[in-house]
C-alpha cells in the first residue's frame, strides 16, 4: 500500500503561483475579474484551513454535543444557501422552515440511516464518518432542492392565470398545479440522474478520487462512491418531494384559492383585480 504524500506549505505556494499567473494575465488583458479572483482564493484558503483545524479538534475529542452542534450549523447554512438561490423570496420564516425541513429529510435522515444501518460505525457519531457524509449529502442534495423549489415558484408565478383558470373550472389545488409539479420534480432530479449516468466514464467523482489519492484500494473507493451516489439520489428525491409538497401547500389556502400573497414577500396589490 502506498501512503499519502504530505503537501508542504511550499507545495501550496507553487500551486498558488498558477492562480497568480492567471490574475496577472487578466489584469493585462483588462478582463476586470482580478479582484474577485484574489478575494475568492484568499477566502478558500482561510475557510479550508479553519475547517481543517475545527475538524482536527472534533475528530480528536469525538464528543457528541460538539458533533451535533457542528451538524446543526451545517444544516442551517445549507438552508440559507437554498433560500438565497431563489429568484422570488418567500415571506417571513416560512422559507427557512421549508428549506430546513426538506434538507433535514434529504441529508440528516439519510446520513443517520447510513450510519446506523449500512456502515454501522461505533459509536454511531464517529466524526470521521458522520461529518463528511452529512457534508456531502447537504452539498449535493441542496442543488436539487434549490432547483426544484425555484422552478415550482417561478413557473407557478408565470402561469398564475392558467392555475386560476383551472381552479375556476372546479379543479382542486393539487390538480391545478399537477403539470408544474412534474416539471419541477424533473428539474430537481436531472442533475443527479446525469451525474449517475456520467460517473466513471466522463468524470471520476471527487470523493473516490480523494480516497484513491490517500491510498485506498480503488475497488473499496468505488464501493463507497456507489453508496454515496445512492444516498445522494435518494436524499435529493425525498428532499425535492418534500419541498414541492410544502411549497404548494403554502401557495394555496384551505379553500383551494391561489394565494401568492401568503407565500411571497413581494407586494401584490394588483393581483386578481384586473
Amino acid at each position: 500500500m502506498n501512503t499519502l504524500i504530505s503537501l508542504s506549505a511550499y507545495d501550496l505556494m507553487l500551486a498558488s503561483l498558477l492562480v497568480l499567473a492567471l490574475v496577472g494575465l487578466t489584469v493585462r488583458l483588462n478582463l476586470g475579474i482580478a479582484q474577485q479572483l484574489v478575494i475568492a482564493a484568499i477566502r478558500t484558503t482561510a475557510q479550508l484551513l479553519l475547517i481543517g483545524l475545527v475538524l482536527k479538534q472534533v475528530f480528536e475529542t469525538a464528543q457528541l454535543p460538539l458533533i451535533a452542534l457542528m451538524m446543526l450549523v451545517m444544516l442551517t447554512v445549507a438552508a440559507w444557501e437554498v433560500l438565497s438561490r431563489q429568484k422570488r423570496k418567500i415571506k417571513g420564516w416560512w422559507g427557512f422552515g421549508i428549506s430546513g425541513l426538506s434538507l433535514f429529510v434529504s441529508s440528516f435522515l439519510i446520513t443517520m440511516i447510513a450510519l446506523f444501518a449500512i456502515i454501522k460505525t461505533d459509536p454511531w457519531y464517529t466524526p470521521q464518518y458522520a461529518i463528511p457524509l452529512l457534508g456531502m449529502l447537504l452539498g449535493n442534495t441542496m442543488n436539487g432542492i434549490a432547483l426544484g423549489m425555484d422552478r415550482l415558484i417561478q413557473t407557478a408565478w408565470q402561469q398564475r392565470a392558467v392555475i386560476e383558470q383551472r381552479l375556476m373550472l372546479g379543479q382542486t389545488a393539487v390538480e391545478a398545479i399537477r403539470e408544474i409539479r412534474h416539471e419541477s420534480m424533473r428539474a430537481g432530479m436531472i442533475p443527479i440522474i446525469n451525474a449517475m449516468a456520467a460517473a466513471g466514464i466522463v468524470s471520476l467523482p471527487g470523493m473516490m478520487t480523494g480516497q484513491i489519492l490517500s491510498g485506498t484500494e480503488p475497488v473499496e473507493a468505488v464501493k463507497y462512491q456507489i453508496l454515496i451516489m445512492f444516498m445522494v439520489t435518494a436524499g435529493t428525491g425525498f428532499g425535492v418531494v418534500a419541498v414541492l409538497h410544502l411549497i404548494s401547500k403554502r401557495m394555496f389556502d384551505s379553500r383551494d384559492r391561489l394565494r401568492f400573497d401568503q407565500l411571497l414577500a413581494e407586494k401584490m396589490q394588483d393581483f386578481g383585480q384586473q
Partner: peptide, 13 residues
C-alpha cells in the same frame, strides 16, 4: 370544498 363550489358557480373570464 372550494373546488366543489366552483363546479356549481362557474366563472368565465
Amino acid at each position: 370544498s372550494g373546488s366543489d363550489w366552483r363546479k356549481q358557480v362557474a366563472l368565465l373570464p
